Amino acid sequence: MTNLFSIFEPTSSIFSISTNWLSTLLGLVFLPYIYWTSPSRWSLLWSKIIKTLHNEFKTLLHISHMGTSTLFISIFSLIIFNNFLGLLPYVFTSSSHLVMTLSLSLPFWITLMIFGWFTHTNHMLAHLVPQGTPPMLMPFMVLIETISNIIRPGTLSVRLAANMIAGHLLLTLLGNTGPSLSLSILSILIISQILLLILESAVAIIQSYVFAILSTLYMSEIN
């Protein structure tokens, strides 16, 4: 088990300083040239994605200004670049570690809680009891809503990390069996690996979208 999970450990270092986490910034390499080169298919596609996300986020947040949804579009961009780069060989997948995912979800959740309780105290208290709850069930509903609110940053981070780890482990386990297989079975393994890679690409998009959209929903409850 130690060898199996060692693929997720940062091992590359310079002067005893871990350099694997620098892979988190690799996504920035793909962005700058969009703004100083002539429009390409890639830049047009990325602009279309950003506009689509903004239209969806502003519907949930009840806003019209582009700047308000920039935070969630940036989170989506960071996660999707890290997820896709993690599918490349010898690239460290930082989004599969709770250190990174908790670093994204926990400060965001704490900020929302501080802002909500100081500026919308009555709304936050009313949110603990759903409308139409019988008086006898109100204490239990307050307890349940409080627990569900507290575990939100954990569920956000664990969902992203667990989905990325599961796919990478499956690809690693199947890939390690390749040298011991016959040629006929090896061809089946290669096809299955390609299909799993396509599935992992879809998971990379879905999980980044889920993280961003749930963060948007949590913020919309405060407004």
Rank of each mutant, 00 (worst) to 15 (best):
H97R: 15
F84P: 02
H127L: 14
G116I: 05
T101K: 03
S105R: 06
A126L: 09
T121S: 15
L88P: 04
I80E: 07
H97W: 09
L85W: 06
W109Y: 14
T93N: 13
H127K: 11
T119L: 10
L125R: 15
M100N: 01
S94D: 05
T101Y: 03
F76T: 02
V91P: 00
S105M: 07
L78F: 12
T101D: 04
S94G: 03
L112A: 04
T101S: 07
F108Q: 06
I75N: 00
S94H: 00
P107W: 10
T93P: 05
P89C: 06
N122V: 03
N83W: 06
H123Y: 08
I79K: 00
L112G: 00
M100A: 05
F76C: 03
W117L: 14
F108D: 07
I80T: 10
H120A: 11
S94K: 01
V91G: 00
F92M: 06
H123T: 14
I114N: 05
V99E: 08
T119F: 11
V129G: 07
F76Q: 03
L88I: 12
L78K: 01
Y90A: 13
S95W: 01
I114Y: 13
F84H: 12
A126G: 13
L125F: 15
G116S: 13
V129S: 12
N82F: 00
W117V: 09
V99K: 05
T111V: 10
I79Q: 04
T111Y: 15
L112R: 04
L85N: 09
N83H: 11
S103K: 05
S105K: 04
M113D: 01
L104T: 01
H127G: 10
L102T: 11
V99H: 03
T111N: 12
N82I: 02
M113C: 07
L85S: 05
H123R: 15
A126F: 06
I110T: 09
H127Y: 15
M124Y: 11
L106K: 02
I80M: 10
F115Q: 07
F92E: 00
S96C: 12
I79S: 02
H120W: 00
T119K: 13
M124V: 12
I75D: 02
L98T: 08
G86I: 03
H123S: 14
N82G: 12
P89G: 07
I114M: 08
N83F: 04
L87N: 10
W109R: 04
M113T: 06
F76D: 02
N122K: 14
A126Y: 10
L102R: 01
S103N: 07
L112P: 02
Y90Q: 12
L88V: 13
G86T: 00
G86P: 03
F115C: 03
V129D: 11
Y90N: 15
S105C: 10
F115L: 12
S95Q: 09
N122Q: 15
L125M: 15
S94P: 03
F115S: 08
L104R: 03
F76G: 02
S105L: 06
S96N: 09
H120Y: 10
F81E: 04
M113H: 08
V129K: 13
L102H: 10
F115K: 07
F81H: 11
F118A: 08
H97L: 14
T93F: 01
Y90E: 11
